[in-house]
Amino acid sequence: MIEVRDLVKSFDGFHALAGASVTVPKGAIYGLVGPNGAGKTTLLRHLTGVYRQDAGTVRIDGQDVWENAAVKMRVASIPDDWYYFMQSNLRDMMAFYRGFYPQFDVARYERLKAVFGLDETQAIRRMSKGMQKQAAFWLAMCCMPDCLILDEPVDGLDPVMRRQVWGLIMQDVSERGTTVMVSSHNLRELEDVCDHVGIMNKGTVLLERSLSELQDNTVKIQIVFEGEAPKVEELAVPTQLRVLHESVVGRVHTIIFRGAQSAVEARLATYKPIFMEAVPLTLEEIFIYELGGADYAVKDIVL
C-alpha cells in the first residue's frame, strides 16, 4: 500500500506540494489527475525516492521510501522523461536493470519481445518517442515490481500499443496484485483502467476516492421547473448538498451536485419539476467541475 501523508516540498520558495496526502490500496490502479503544475510529477518523484520531502511521510507498505533500496527494489517507474544511457541499446539497459532488480525476469523479457517488437540492438536514442516509451514499459514490466509508478505512461504510444500496454498492466494487477499509481491527463483512458482517483490542485489532493464512489457521489441532473427556477443556493442549503456547476439552455437546467443521487432527487422533487433526469458523469466532467470549485474553471474568453 502506498501512503503519503502531509507531503510538503518547496523549490526555491515555491511550494510544489503543500501537504498532499494520498492512500493507494494494495492492488489498486490509482489515477492521479490534476491541472498542469498541480504537483503530480513531484509527488510521483517522492514515491520513487528521487526527491526528499521537506515534511510529511512517503511510505510503501509502511516503510519510508527515501534511501530505502529494499523498498525501491519493489518499485518500478516510468517517468515522463525516461532516462537511458546515450550509447545504450535495449539489451544494455536490460543488463543494467538486472543489476538493480534481483527479481528481474529474463524469461518475461524474452516473451515480451513479441509484444513490443523493438530491435534490441538499436541505440535507444535513435528510437522514436513512442518506441522509447515501449522500451521503458518492456523493462519496467520485467522488473516484476510490486508497485508501478507511471507518469504520463502512454503519452506518445499509438492506440494499439496503448491498449496493449494497459492490458499488460491490468494483467499484472490481477495476477500479481501489483499496485499502480498513474498520472495522466487522458481522463477518458484513466476512467477505463483506474479503480481509484485522486484529484490534485496547487500541491494538495482535493479529493480521492474509488471511481465508483466518486461517480456515485457526484450527480448530474437535467431538470425543468414549472415556474421560475429557484436560486442555486436554495437548492443546496438544507440537505448539505453542494452545487458544483449549473447551466441553463432554454428552460432546461443542468445542475451538477456533490452528494448522493437519491438525496439530490429527493431535494429537487420538492420543487415539483416538470422534468428531471440523472445523467451519468464522466471522470473528465467530475475533474472539471471539482476544480471549478477550486478556482480552476474553464473560462469563457472572448478573443
Partner: peptide
C-alpha cells in the same frame, strides 16, 4: 543532467552506493 539524475536516483540504490 536532470533526466540522468532522476533516473539514477530512482534506482534501488542508496546515495552512498
Amino acid at each position: 543532467n536532470p533526466r540522468a539524475t532522476n533516473g539514477l536516483h530512482a534506482l534501488p540504490a542508496r546515495r552512498e552506493t
